[in-house]
Design a protein around this nucleic acid. Structure first.
Length: 425
RNA sequence: GGAGAGGUGGCUGAGCGGUCGAAAGCGGCGGAUUGCUAAUCCGUUGUACGGUAAAUAUUCUGUACCCGGGGUUCAAAUCCCCGCCUCUCCGCCA
C-alpha cells in the first residue's frame, strides 16, 4: 500500500507506475483523491462535534436535576448529528481503503520497460550449458526408470499437477532443502518453520490479496488460506509491532510447503515436476530499515545467496531484471534466477528476488523505532533460496550419464549417506 | 467436541457508566548523587490522523485507539450481542 499523503502530492507518478506495470490505475487514483477530500472534510467536521460532545459531557457529570435533564436533551441532537457523520463516513473509508489496496507500488527506474517475461533483461549468466553425446532423457523418464518419481500414483491420490517422490528422489528433495537451509543459517538467517494455513490478514498484508484469491486454496469453513509461499507468514510475523532499529535487519529463512491453484495456467507446463499444486520451498525474508541504500544492499545480498546455492549445486543459470509488465503489484524491483533445464531446452524460473520498500509493511503495520525515537515503516524483501521439486528437474537432467545413472551433486552427497550416484535398483 | 476463566499501555497489573490515555510496579529515557559498578532519589515515558504555525516541528491543540466488529446511552475500558484469541478441566487424537 502506498502512502496516501505521497499519492496525494504526486498522483501522476502513481499513474505512470500503473502504466509501466500494465496495471492501469488512472481512474482509481482520481477516485481516491476525491474520496480522500470528502473524508477529510467529514472527519474534520465530525471531530469538532465530538469535541463539543465530550466537553459538555463532562459538565453534565457535575450537574443535577432539571438542569442536567435539559443539557442531556440538548446533547441528544448532537449525538444524532455525529451518528449521521459516521453513516456517511463509513462507506467512504471502506471504498478508499479497498482502492488503496489495489494501487500498484512504484517500480524502480532500473526496471526495464516491457510487457511480458520476453522483455526481461539479461543481467548475467553463470556456468556452461553442457553438451551431451548421448540421447537425453527428461527428468520424468529418469525418475520413473529409477523409481524416484511417481506421477500416476500421485494423480490417483490427489488429481492433476501433483507428484510423489520415492526412494532417492525423496531423499534428494530433503537434501536440497536442508543443504540450502544450512547455507542460510551460516549466513546469519534464523530458520523458521511456519504455519501454512493462515488467516486472511497475512495474505492481504503481503499483498497477495485482494487480487490473488483465485491462486490460493481457501478453507472457507474456517476462513483460512493455504499459503503459496512462506513469505506470507514470515513477513507478517512482526505485523502490528514496532521493532527496535538495533534489531534490524532481521534475516529469516522460512521453510514450508507451498500451495498454488495455478488457475489460469490450464494446459501450460503440464508435463513433469515443473508446475504443480504443492511444493516445498526455503525462502529468504528480510525486514530492514526504511532506507533505499539498505534495501538495495539487501536485494543484492539475497540474490547472491541464492546464486551461491545454485552454484554449489553446479547448475548453469542466468539472472534477469524483470520488466515492468512482468512485475507484480507490490514489487519495486525483481530479479529472477532461471536455471538451465535440458528438457525445456531453455532456462526455467527457479528463484525470484523482490524488494518492496514499505509497500507490504504499511499493510502489515510493520514498523521500527530509530535511535531518535522516530517511528518508520520497515522495508521488506524476499527471495527464493530453493524450491523443490522444480529444481530437481535441472539436477536430475543435468547430472544424467550415458549408463542411465544420475550423479549426485557433491554438496548433497553428505545429506544422502555419502552416495555419489543414483542407479537402477 | 463439552464445562469454566480471561483478553487493559514495552511487560506485570488496578480500574465505580461520566473528571480515564487510563492507578501502581517493572523496564526504558533524562538528571542528581557515587572513584567505577551496584544501589538510592527526582523527573519523564504510546500510536495514528487533523488543526495551529514561516515550517512533512521533539510548541500548543483536537479526535480516535483499553483483542476485533456491532449495539444501548447525552456519555462506555466499564453494560449487551457476535466473532477471534489465550488459559484450566473433561473427552478425542497424530
Amino acid at each position: 500500500m502506498l502512502n496516501l499523503k505521497a499519492l496525494r502530492e504526486n498522483p501522476d507518478l502513481v499513474k505512470a507506475a500503473g502504466r509501466k506495470k500494465y496495471i492501469p490505475c488512472e481512474e482509481s487514483v482520481d477516485r481516491i483523491l476525491s474520496l480522500d477530500d470528502q473524508r477529510k472534510k467529514l472527519v474534520f467536521e465530525s471531530e469538532e462535534l465530538r469535541a463539543d460532545q465530550k466537553k459538555v459531557g463532562k459538565e453534565i457529570a457535575t450537574l443535577e436535576g432539571e438542569e442536567k435533564q435539559a443539557r442531556i436533551a440538548e446533547m441528544g441532537e448532537i449525538a444524532e448529528r455525529i451518528k449521521g457523520y459516521e453513516k456517511e463516513l463509513g462507506p467512504i473509508e471502506t471504498e478508499l481503503h479497498e482502492l488503496m489496496l489495489l494501487v500498484p507500488n512504484i517500480p524502480a527506474e532500473e526496471v526495464p520497460d516491457g510487457e511480458t517475461d520476453e522483455d526481461n533483461v539479461l543481467v548475467r549468466e553463470w556456468g556452461e550449458i553442457p553438451q551431451f553425446d548421448f540421447p537425453l532423457k527428461d527428468h520424468l523418464e529418469l525418475g520413473e526408470e529409477l523409481d524416484l518419481i511417481d506421477m500416476k500414483g500421485a494423480a490417483k491420490l490427489a488429481g492433476s499437477r501433483t507428484y510423489m517422490l520415492k526412494n532417492e528422489g525423496a531423499l534428494l528433495e530433503l537434501a536440497v532443502l536442508q543443504f540450502t537451509l544450512n547455507h542460510l543459517v551460516e549466513k546469519g538467517f534464523s530458520p523458521m518453520l511456519v504455519p501454512t494455513l493462515v488467516r486472511r490478514e497475512p495474505m492481504v498484508g503481503t499483498a497477495y490479496f485482494p487480487g490473488g484469491e483465485e491462486q490460493a486454496y481457501a478453507c472457507e469453513k474456517d476462513g483460512k488460506y493455504l499459503i503459496g509461499t512462506s513469505e506470507v507468514p514470515v513477513t507478517a510475523y512482526h505485523s502490528g509491532e514496532i521493532l527496535d532499529e538495533a534489531d534490524l535487519p532481521r534475516l529469516y529463512a522460512g521453510y514450508s510447503t507451498c500451495y498454488r491453484r495455478e488457475a489460469g495456467a490450464a494446459g501450460r507446463d503440464t508435463r513433469g515436476l515443473y508446475r504443480i499444486h504443492q511444493f516445498n520451498k526455503v525462502e529468504q525474508v528480510i525486514v530492514c530499515r526504511n532506507d533505499e541504500e539498505e534495501s538495495l544492499r539487501m536485494h543484492e545480498f539475497i540474490l547472491s545467496n541464492a546464486e551461491e546455492v545454485v552454484q554449489a549445486l553446479e547448475l548453469p543459470y542466468r539472472v534477469v531484471n524483470v520488466c515492468g509488465g512482468d512485475l507484480g503489484q507490490p514489487q519495486v524491483q525483481k530479479f529472477d534466477i532461471e536455471t538451465w533445464m535440458p528438457s525445456r531446452e531453455s532456462y526455467g524460473e527457479t528463484h525470484s528476488a523482490s524488494r518492496f520498500h514499505d509497500f507490504q509493511s504499511r499493510r502489515l503495520d510493520l514498523r521500527y523505532r530509530d535511535s531518535d525515537g522516530k517511528v518508520h515503516f520497515c522495508h521488506t524483501l524476499n527471495n527464493t533460496a530453493i524450491a523443490s521439486p522444480r529444481i530437481l528437474i535441472s539436477i536430475l537432467e543435468l547430472n544424467q550419464e550415458a549408463d542411465g545413472r544420475i550423479r549426485i551433486p557433491g554438496v548433497l552427497q553428505s545429506y544422502m549417506g555419502g552416495k555419489e550416484y543414483i542407479g537402477p535398483k
